[in-house]
């Protein structure tokens, strides 16, 4: 922990980044919900519900966290500043389920920065960058939203 915890410059930097980047789409990507990948993901997370593990199930669909396995080409906007320090930590992903994803669905994802914020704790000042991937299907219906927290600290 440094003596510079919570000082003005870092906060100003974050405020400027928020104003410039939050809410703007910086990348798009398309995916097809392939049955094999859906099954592999369900197996990898230990799922046993046949809706997610048995293609013959009449309600077969992707596991609710399947979209957390899909990533855009860019993690951050091209000119995103190096705020918060050089060390990065994966702060985890949160998934909002909006519609079932079925085999063969064509998904379009839009990547935005949903939030940038700071907090202080035992390890000092940490900067949180939240990347949001919003998925719609071939009918333009929202199916899933994944928020990925990236933590940076000095």
């Amino acid at each position: 922990m440094s003596d510079t915890e919570g000082t003005e410059p870092a906060s100003t930097e974050v405020q400027e980044a928020k104003a410039k980047y939050v809410g703007f789409v910086f990348d798009t990507a398309t995916f097809t919900a392939e049955q094999d990948k859906m099954l592999a993901w369900a197996e990898s997370v230990g799922e046993t519900d046949p809706r997610f593990t048995d293609p013959s199930n009449p309600d077969f669909q992707a596991h609710p966290t399947f979209t957390a396995s899909l990533v855009s080409r860019r993690v951050l906007p091209e000119d995103f500043p190096k705020i918060g320090g050089p060390r990065g930590i994966d702060g985890g992903k949160a998934v909002v389920i909006q519609q079932p994803i079925r085999p063969g669905d064509r998904l379009k994802a839009s990547a935005t920065i949903a939030d940038i914020y700071e907090k202080t704790g035992r390890s000092g000042t940490m900067t949180f960058i939240v990347q949001r991937m919003s998925f719609v299907n071939q009918n333009d219906e929202p199916v899933s939203m994944v928020d990925w927290k990236m933590i940076r600290n000095p």
Binding site: M1, D3, E5, T120, G121, R122, G124
Partner: peptide, 13 residues
């Protein structure tokens, strides 16, 4: 009383 980041650590500085 938290080391480095608590009120009393700031008091010292």
């Amino acid at each position: 009383g938290r080391r480095n980041v608590g009120l009393f650590a700031h008091y010292e500085r």
